[in-house]
């Protein structure tokens, strides 16, 4: 090989190493992102909220409505009460019930969403089944509490909040089935 070819190969090897390292860097962004979210407290779906202000605002009442959905799963899932009226700052506990109707154990994860969306950050959960994955034996039924406080800084124009949980199946997600489902009803 000529000197030039050797030199070319040397730079080639370096650049290939660079490209491979950047492929790794892409995956490194995952823990990095999770760490940032954890440190800054953005998007902590799986941890109880901290309540700083425990002053109960008795002058206001907010209606909290509960909703339950399962995403392509063999479970029945429902809130034991449809709604409660609470004062901001007051601790409330309600309960949901899930039943596994399939004859195999199934693991699911609940993800909350809120209407109006901006109310989410004021709905502080002390305890929630959505903090962990739930595994249900065949036919098992489970009653699970949600303990929450509404942050008293909730904007006054919010008079009602809908809290909606959706259960997704975790292990062995059936992507193909989900996708054909999405295709046929679209």
């Amino acid at each position: 090989m000529t000197a030039l070819a050797v030199e070319n190969r040397r730079v080639l090897v370096r650049l290939v190493i660079g490209a491979v390292a950047m492929f790794g860097f892409g995956f490194l962004l995952v823990p990095f992102y999770e760490k940032i979210c954890e440190v800054t407290g953005i998007n902590n779906l799986l941890k109880p909220d901290v309540v700083a202000n425990t002053q109960v605002d008795a002058s206001r009442e907010v209606l909290v409505l509960f909703d339950a959905n399962v995403h392509d799963m063999p479970w029945t899932f429902r809130p034991l009460q449809r709604s409660v009226s609470v004062h901001p700052g007051e601790l409330q506990t309600i309960a949901y019930e899930i039943t596994n109707t399939r004859d195999v154990p199934v693991t699911g994860q609940a993800v909350p969403s809120y209407g109006p969306q901006r109310a989410g950050q004021f709905f502080l959960k002390m305890e929630c089944f959505c903090f962990t994955q739930q595994t249900l034996a065949p036919g098992e039924s489970r009653t699970m509490p949600v303990a929450f406080v509404l942050d008293p800084t909730l904007p006054v124009d919010v008079e009602a909040i809908t809290v909606s949980y959706t259960f997704f199946e975790v292990a062995g997600r059936r992507v193909q089935a989900a996708s054909t489902g999405a295709g046929s009803d679209s």
Binding site: A19, M22, F23, G26, F27
Partner: peptide, 14 residues
């Protein structure tokens, strides 16, 4: 290109 195409490849691999 060398810096970011691999990152895209990683994203679509995920």
């Amino acid at each position: 290109l060398i810096a970011v195409m691999p990152v895209l490849a990683g994203a679509v691999t995920m």
